[in-house]
Simulated scan of single mutants.
Amino acid sequence: MTSLESMDLDFVRLGSTGIETSELQFGTWRFGKETETGTVEIDEERAYELLDAYEAAGGRYIDTADVYGGGKSEEWIGNWLADRDRERFTIASKIYWQIRDGDPNSAGNNRKNLRHRIDAILERLDTDYIDVLYIHRWDDETPTRELLRTLDGFVRDGKVHYLGASTLRPNAWKVAKANEIAERKGWEPFSVVQPRYNLVDREIEGDYLEMSRHYGLAVCPWSPLGQGFLTGKYTRDDGLVGESRVAESSRFEQSYLVAENFDVHDELDAVAEAVNATPAQTALAWLMHRDGVTAPIVGARTVEQLEENLVAATIDLDEGQVRRLTEAMSGPYYRL
Rank of each mutant, 00 (worst) to 15 (best):
E248K: 12
L14R: 00
S16M: 03
D316G: 07
R236V: 11
A312E: 12
R236I: 07
G59V: 00
E44P: 01
V67H: 07
N179C: 13
N113G: 07
R60F: 02
A53T: 09
E307Y: 00
Y234K: 03
K174W: 14
Y208P: 04
A280W: 02
M329V: 10
V132Y: 04
N171T: 10
A283L: 10
F89I: 00
Y61C: 03
W29Q: 08
W222P: 06
S223M: 13
I297P: 01
W29L: 07
G38H: 14
V311K: 13
Y96S: 10
G164N: 09
L163D: 10
D83R: 14
A176Y: 08
A57R: 02
A92C: 05
S16E: 13
L325S: 03
A272N: 05
E146W: 07
E210N: 11
A280V: 03
A300F: 04
A53M: 06
G228L: 07
L24Q: 12
G232V: 06
L325E: 10
D128Q: 02
S250Q: 07
V160D: 03
Y162M: 10
L317S: 00
I77G: 01
I121M: 01
L310K: 03
E188F: 00
R84P: 00
A218N: 09
L257W: 11
S73L: 07
W76K: 03
I99H: 11
D63Y: 02
Q227Y: 06
R115D: 14
D63P: 03
G331A: 12
N79T: 01
V275D: 05
R184N: 08
A285C: 09
L209D: 13
A270T: 12
R245K: 11
T235H: 03
Y61D: 13
R84F: 01
E45M: 08
E44Q: 14
R86V: 09
R145C: 02
D157G: 01
A313G: 07
A120E: 14
V160P: 00
D131P: 01
L9Y: 08
R196S: 13
E141S: 12
S250F: 00
L51T: 09
L310Q: 03
D126I: 02
E183R: 15
V298P: 09
